[in-house]
Design a protein around this nucleic acid. Sequence first.
RNA 1: GGGGUCGUAGUUCAGUCGGUUAGAACGCCGGCCUGUCACGCCGGAGGUCGCGAGUUCGAGUCUCGUCGGCCCCGCCA
Length: 592
Amino acid sequence: MSIKIDSLGDWKRTHYCGELRKSHCEKEVILFGWVSRIRDLGNLVFIDLRDREGIVQVVFTSENKQLIDRAKKIKMEYVLGIKGKVQRREEKSMNRELPTGEIEVLAKELKILNISQTTPFVISDPPQASEELRFKYRYLDLRRPSLQRNIKLRHQIALKIRNFMAKKGFLEIETPFLSKSTPEGARDYLVPSRIYKGKFYALPQSPQLFKQILMISGFDKYFQIVRCFRDEDLRADRQPEFTQIDIEMSFIDPEDIYNLIEEMMKEVFDVINYSIKTPFKKIPYNESIEKYGTDRPDLRNKIEIINITDLAKDSEVEIFKKVIASGGEVRGIVVREGIGFSRKELDELGERARTLGGKGIIWIKRDETGFKSPLKIKEDFFLKLWEYMNAKMGDLILLVADEKFLTLKILGELRNLVGKKTDSKDYRFVWITDFPLFEWSEEENRIISNHHPFTAPKEEDLKYLETDPLRVRSKAYDLVINGIEIGGGSIRINNIELQERIFKILGLNEKEIKDKFGFFLEALKYGAPPHGGIALGFDRLVMILAGEDSIREVIPFPKTTSALCLLTGSPSEVAQKQIEELGLELKKPQNK
RNA sequence: GGGGUCGUAGUUCAGUCGGUUAGAACGCCGGCCUGUCACGCCGGAGGUCGCGAGUUCGAGUCUCGUCGGCCCCGCCA
């Protein structure tokens, strides 16, 4: 039995389903939406109609026999137009769960504007389908109220930021997507050139050089909410294409950036009615590593890492002596009231330490009966340890002995794992400052930029640039919220000689420098103003504000962790003709 | 590139030690029902156990490979 599809005719929506309240009572309304639930009681049919603003109950009664007969043919996800009257529900049949639950719409006319196949999963919040299926049918997934809310929130935040930046005198200026591949940093997404066979554009990892060039052009205050592309492996908070709030300013120092961003964050968090205190805490990189074992600490977590190497070297513990003798360290954390950790949980923490490259962990518990630990030594050391680490009865101490940075990394991770039960509605902002300018790359066996090669060194460290480069600190800063790196930036080098010195230290030869950055070095010669900026991860920011754990929940059309778009089926093969046009040849015949 | 984990009805899952006809809930189809709101009640249909090899008298179950989802390490200036 086929259903007649109605035409829209001259119907115009008067209200969104989700906006109706008791103040609309007695009003005639026209609604459009999707059927989200049907409750057919025979001579009484209820339909929950959903649009982007919410859900409202539409009721069909047997007073209008023709109408209710047609209503009985309605199925899930049909597209309906309803003309009806808003009426107050009786006290006992109100739905307190629903914002529209005090009223309902008594249908007078019905238009079935389209039918729908049975959906591959029921559209419900929270979702009852795998992410795989949700991504394949993302248009259905996106009908879920929580995703509608996230996408709306994303818009509101973007709008807030645009208005804020405009108010502060910034210009939103676009930069090219088809641009130049440069060494350093992430792997580029490449776009082959048809006109110049064998040559490639690269999609931008960020508009870094363009925004610096805009400073040289005198635009002074630039921003852009812009897509960036990095061909690296994915994570819960990483997508191959993501959106950045990109900012650059001239004639500024880091304080100007801090002030601007702190004020922006105030406005942004206002969207979720969360008021934040400024200025944000600032922690130098080295201190953050020593205390938290990471450069993106979650400050909701009170645990700090304590160095007990001095204490451990006089202990009778062989493993400590061995590690210290070979230049390693012993450090630990105190887990308050940690006595309740089970053997299984402790084993899991040890396993985690091993996956990070460590040998494991040592744990010590203390209660009224004494100490418990796999370490079978005299109580003497434990007593000293408890005093030194300021631990109490009922606490758990976790120790790691290894090479310094591995020790810190493992304890940083343990700190996150054991301190997890923190308030999720609380937001802790911190600036991490004074990053090292360079780091040593084991893989490439050379010095590489920690941030990027255009980052300015701190003046007082310039003297070590050639002699002890790893000691040089930079004018770089990261913004971290609840352990999530939300953005980073720096004051840039605007002096050609210094820039060339940096490239030399990075081991780039003259030709490479000229080929890859020649255009930029040239620009630096024509009155480049002092400048600096920052880039904030927009998706991550929205994720935090939406209270989501995955960036995919705030991106309308995300990719899977293997960089597939399940909706469109990309990446996909292309016609041989297209490949030939680009002057390309595939190495292996595609077998899929 | 590496590790972990998952893949069974449209969906979410259960499936014992390798054994006979692979189950449940929701959804779907048919029927009843005037105040439901995850409506309820009665009945029904629905399975390439991801795919491919192998072991075995016999494989959803064991082995290997492969594809895919998720998490992590490396990577992500």
